[in-house]
């Protein structure tokens, strides 16, 4: 079982002999702990804590024309919330998130279940499905610039053989976001499948055998045994997938720049444009603060899940 493995890992320290453990603690002083943690803490301070604080300060600092400071307040947030593009980006990110996460995970489960048996053919098929995972996202984007080209691109060229007319995938506000979603599914589904495979491995075969004796078919076994036991795995995948949805924008920058008509503009791209294209660092900081808050609440909410998921040794 998936939990069995992770619980073993979590429980392991408890099996130590307490007397000796205490001796070690006293032998090594708190000051040593300080020195061991200092390098990491110092670096985190420079590149995580200070930037967060800076984003916060920037977000509440008001600037006049030409960057003249004119005091503090919530004006940047007001302007952010008054900006239709921001809400559009938030909405797009939501659609992008749902559109990417749900299909990738469903695909990962279906493929994982279908390819769980360790045959040579399955190993080959798994490799084929996992390959996109190791590609740089920008490389995927440059490939998809051709894949998605209307008429002559890889997709249309082969769809045409099925009698499907050319589509301007990236050129229409109706399809561009879905094209980006398709790219993300292709890039990430294999990654999630690996976790599903590991989760499946941990399900005791006896459970299936017993259910089979009870006359349960493969479908009912999937829903009654496999899926419930995969739950912790899926929760873990869900967290990673959400992080990816918020923090990956290389493909958007390379393929669409957020267009057409802002239809592929997601939050991080919005921040990027506000900061660099419109030189509006206050509004960019306000949006950053909101994203950081969202991600932090995600990490607080999912600490347990992350802790468990971190130990899938296959």
């Amino acid at each position: 079982m998936a939990q069995a493995l992770t619980e073993a890992a979590i429980l392991a320290p408890r099996l130590e002999r307490p007397a000796q453990a205490r001796r070690t603690h006293s032998a090594i002083s708190t000051s040593l702990a300080f020195w061991l943690l200092a390098p990491s803490f110092f670096l985190l301070f420079l590149f995580t804590y200070v930037p967060i604080l800076e984003a916060l300060t920037q977000a509440v600092s008001l600037e006049g024309f030409g960057g003249k400071p004119i005091g503090y307040g919530l004006g940047n947030f007001q302007r952010l919330f008054a900006d239709a593009s921001f809400w559009k980006a938030l909405w797009n990110n939501l659609v992008y998130g749902l559109g990417t996460v749900a299909p990738s995970i469903i695909l990962a489960v279906v493929l994982g279940v279908a390819l769980q048996e360790a045959t040579r053919l399955n190993a080959l098929l798994r490799t084929m499905i996992v390959f996109p995972v190791v590609l740089p996202l920008v490389a995927v984007a440059t490939l998809f610039a051709f894949v998605l080209m209307p008429g002559v691109g890889l997709l249309d060229h082969h769809l045409a053989k099925l009698g499907i007319a050319a589509t301007n995938w990236l050129g229409s506000p109706d399809t561009a976001l879905y094209a980006i979603i398709g790219l993300s599914i292709w890039k990430n589904a294999g990654y999630y499948m690996l976790f599903v495979l590991a989760g499946l491995q941990a399900i005791a075969p006896e459970l299936h055998e017993a259910a089979k004796l009870d006359g349960a078919g493969p479908v009912s076994r999937f829903f009654r045994i496999t899926l419930p036991l995969l739950k912790p795995t899926l929760a873990f995948i869900l967290v990673i997938a959400i992080i990816n949805v918020v923090t990956q924008i290389d493909h958007v920058i390379v393929l669409t720049g957020g267009g057409p008509s802002d239809s592929t503009n997601i939050i991080l791209n919005y921040i990027f444009q506000a900061a660099h294209q419109q030189g509006d660092s206050g509004r960019a900081a306000a949006a950053t603060v909101i994203s950081v808050a969202a991600l932090l609440s995600l990490s607080v909410a999912s600490l347990r899940t992350l802790e468990r998921g971190m130990h899938y040794e296959s």
């Binding site: 080209m149 050129g171 229409s172 057409p260």
Partner: peptide, 19 residues
């Protein structure tokens, strides 16, 4: 003219290809 935003690579490609 086709509907939608025509990306420059697609336009150049179409011009080279006679589309």
């Amino acid at each position: 003219m086709p509907e939608g935003t025509i990306q420059t690579p697609a336009m150049n490609n179409a011009f080279f290809g006679g589309q």
